[in-house]
Amino acid sequence: MAAVLVSTTVNGDAVEYSCAPRESLLDVLRNRLGLTGSKEGCGTGDCGACSVIVDGRLVCACLMLGAEMDGRTVETVEGLADGATLHPLQTKFLEHAALQCGVCTPGFLMASKALLARNANPTEEEIRFALAGNLCRCTGYDKIVRAVSAAAAELAHPAKSGTGKKTGGKKAAGGKATGKKKG
């Protein structure tokens, strides 16, 4: 099978690669472009660990072909931060401890980015349904939902002093029992 030559834009950079016609976008990103931030949890479109944004649409990179990317724009987790400045979603995921093992995190970040692009102020329910295609086995999703809400708020009203972790805030109940209310 002849290789296909593809010119595309990945995270703002013009990129050229050749790939086999059957090769998935995920394999191209990970194996040819060295962008291993997108993960393969299933390869069948069921887990969302490979979520990337193509021409503004959230897709499973394992279900698209590398050959289809000619002339398109691909965004992956590696392009989320602006240089050393993290995207508010990244900051809020860290502050809210929305990751444990972190293997699902790149997918959740991209899916959340796509969500906030079309709905700047989602409710808890809207967040839960928008992220239902992304599996996380570690967190029980509670802290992920909180992080996405907080990032939405941050994007709407950026805090003046940056988004550094507050350790004296209401959640800093260091060493005390924490009874949290239903969110």
């Binding site: 949890g41 299933c42 069948t44 069921d46 887990c47 808890e124 329910e125 967040i127 839960r128 349904f129 992220l131 239902a132 295609g133 992304n134 599996l135 996380c136 086995r137 029980g140 999703y141 509670d142 992920i144 939902v145 060493g175 029992a177 924490t178 009874g179 949290k180 209310k181 239903k182 969110g183």
Partner: peptide, 23 residues
Amino acid sequence: PGFLDYRIAVCSDLPMLDTQILE
């Protein structure tokens, strides 16, 4: 043998999970 038919809990299946830590 796949996540489609072996269905683990997804985000929309669950409410917030409240916790109380005793020490």
